[in-house]
């Protein structure tokens, strides 16, 4: 599906992000091609969020990012970003909120067109939110708000989606549905980079995992090559049961390493 000659959706070269003197992202290089669903894993404070924010130009950084090389208005059409903190400041309707994803596609002062409304309707349907259009977004439950915000990112309709813990706080059905939808999108030629704490979901849905530890990239490859006993012990400090079944890779965390 992906021809090797097509430019990558994201390429980071020696990207570093500093908090004061301390590098929270330390010379990380990553390439993501169209068609890939890439999981970003690592313990708390490993630099997952800083890596993504640095790549987007939201944090001062050193090194090269293909996204920050773009002008801001073009970047907004190249990547949709779903931050971790799920902010909804005013009680606007779900439809209004998701329509914000169309802002990069509208000319100055232009009202939403038919294709914008179609994109919003698709995004709402994908996140199982049809019928929620007129509800105030702030009156929904936490998990529903998370889905509304995901729908906003989907409505942006970019070649690349970067999402910071998009399934945290969702019920199992919607965790699976969200990742399955992202996988479907990547099969249609888009790409996604999602940070995940649920290694079981990461193992099952991602084409590739990137393991971060202390700001550095420790591993990058197929889930079964990343979720090795040594990596789990050294980086996460846990043991796990990992098997390959006819359902794909099955991961179950077991115990803390003492």
């Amino acid at each position: 599906m992906t021809t090797p000659s097509s430019p990558p959706c994201l390429s980071l070269l020696d990207l570093s992000v500093y908090r004061g003197e301390c590098p929270v992202v330390d010379h990380v290089s990553i390439t993501i091609q169209a068609g890939e669903l890439v999981g970003l894993i690592g313990p708390n404070g490993a630099g997952k969020t800083s890596l993504m924010r640095g790549a987007l130009g939201l944090l001062p950084h050193q090194g090269h990012s293909s996204l920050t090389a773009l002008r801001a208005d073009l970047r907004a059409k190249a990547v949709a970003w779903l931050p971790q903190n799920r902010e909804i400041a005013w009680p606007v309707s779900v439809e209004t909120l998701v329509m914000l994803g169309r802002v990069p596609h509208l000319a100055a002062g232009q009202m939403p067109q038919q294709n914008d409304r179609t994109a919003v309707a698709h995004a709402l349907a994908a996140m199982d939110l049809t019928g929620f259009e007129k509800r105030p977004a702030t009156a929904l439950s936490g998990g529903e708000q998370a889905r509304v915000l995901m729908a906003r990112a989907l409505a942006q309709d970019c070649p690349l989606i970067m999402a910071d813990e998009p399934v945290a706080g969702l019920d199992p059905r919607h965790q699976i549905a969200t990742l399955a939808y992202l996988r479907d999108l990547t099969r249609q030629g888009k790409a996604a980079l999602v940070s995940l704490h649920d290694l079981g979901l990461a193992a099952r849905f991602c084409d590739r995992l990137i393991l971060m530890d202390h700001g550095q990239k420790r591993a990058d490859g197929a889930p079964k090559n990343v979720l090795t006993e040594a990596h789990l012990r050294q980086v996460f400090g846990i043991t796990a049961h990992v098997t390959t079944s006819d359902q794909g890779l099955i991961f179950q965390a077991l115990e803390v390493v003492r």
């Binding site: 902010e87 005013w90 990069p104």
Partner: peptide, 20 residues
């Protein structure tokens, strides 16, 4: 006006929607 709308989502999301 449009920038204020995108700020509903917070500063990070607004910036990623192309708002300076």
């Amino acid at each position: 006006a449009r920038g204020l709308d995108t700020l509903i989502l917070g500063e990070d999301a607004a910036a990623s929607l192309g708002i300076n």
